[in-house]
């Protein structure tokens, strides 16, 4: 038996928004520790890794490990039926071929349940080694989304260049060239507005804009985003999810032949 209760179901709506542009379907692996998901986009250029710890839920029970293969378009249809303030309960029997989503209004006067068929998906995962990154940049997530959106007008690729002075995002194409430089913030009232850089070695890498733009669909999950970079390894774009855990996106760089 699997059962997870979430008082504010808006979190799951935001998670779904954050993954459905990159993934058509995904396996949600449920265990005592929580819910995890790892999946690559169709072209295998990027990878999504989601971790929602069990202690973040208002109630969580998972008697046996359960892998739920879910069509994300179907799940989106169901989650659209929930109000943002509804209380969500997800339930599945062991070895079930369906999962139930129940939405209760705050005053408990309206209760809806939706039964969704599960699908069989390949269960293969990639092993991601622990990496000490040369540069770790933290910045407001809204600022990162804005930069990705603005630069995608100028080219298909963004060059991210990090030194101890700051981080530079550049794009070039038919229109011309664009450069956006962010320095570390000296003083900020709110931690979430800060730009901070931890640098061991300067790094410059090139990435496809359209994936970065897809990652920014997670902006609503966290006021800050963390970019981790080392020479010739995938970029990691991480959004913390409150008391639950995180969503991480890995993106393979473009390299000069």
């Amino acid at each position: 038996m699997f059962e997870a209760r979430l008082v504010q179901c808006s979190m799951l709506k935001k998670v779904l928004e954050a993954i459905k542009e990159l993934l058509n379907e995904a396996t949600f692996d449920c265990s005592d520790a929580g819910i995890q998901l790892q999946a690559m986009d169709n072209s295998h250029v990027s990878l999504v890794s989601l971790n929602l710890r069990s202690d973040g839920f208002d109630k969580y029970r998972c008697d046996r490990n359960l892998s739920m293969g879910i069509n994300l378009a179907s799940m989106t249809k169901i989650m659209k039926c929930a109000g943002n303030d509804d209380v969500l309960t997800i339930k599945a029997q062991d070895n079930a071929d369906n999962v139930m989503f129940m939405f209760e209004s705050q005053n408990q006067e309206k209760v809806s349940d939706y039964d969704m068929k599960l699908i069989n998906l390949d269960q293969e995962h990639l092993g991601i080694p622990e990496t000490d990154y040369s540069c770790i940049i933290k910045m407001p997530s809204g600022e990162f989304a804005r930069i990705c959106r603005d630069l995608s007008q100028f080219g298909e690729s963004v060059v991210i260049s990090c030194t101890k002075e700051g981080v530079k995002f550049s794009a070039a194409g038919d229109v011309g060239a664009a450069n956006i430089k962010l320095a570390q913030t000296a003083n900020v009232d709110k931690e979430e507005e800060a730009v901070t850089i931890e640098m061991q070695e300067p790094v410059t890498l090139t990435f496809a804009c359209r994936y970065l733009n897809s990652f920014t669909k997670a902006t609503a999950l966290s006021p800050q985003v963390q970019l981790s970079m080392s020479a010739d390894v995938p970029l990691v774009v991480e959004y913390k999810i409150g008391d639950f855990g995180h969503i991480r996106y890995y993106l393979a760089p473009k390299i000069e032949e």
């Binding site: 690559m40 072209s43 295998h44 250029v45 990027s46 990878l47 293969e124 995962h125 990639l126 092993g127 991601i128 080694p129 690729s157 090139t206 496809a208 390894v233 995938p234 890995y250 393979a252 760089p253 473009k254 390299i255 000069e256 032949e257």
Partner: peptide
């Protein structure tokens, strides 16, 4: 000329 790498250039199946 730039080539787009994939996850498989960096990570192995677990």
């Amino acid at each position: 000329n730039q080539t787009q790498r994939t996850m498989h250039n960096y990570f192995e199946w677990a």
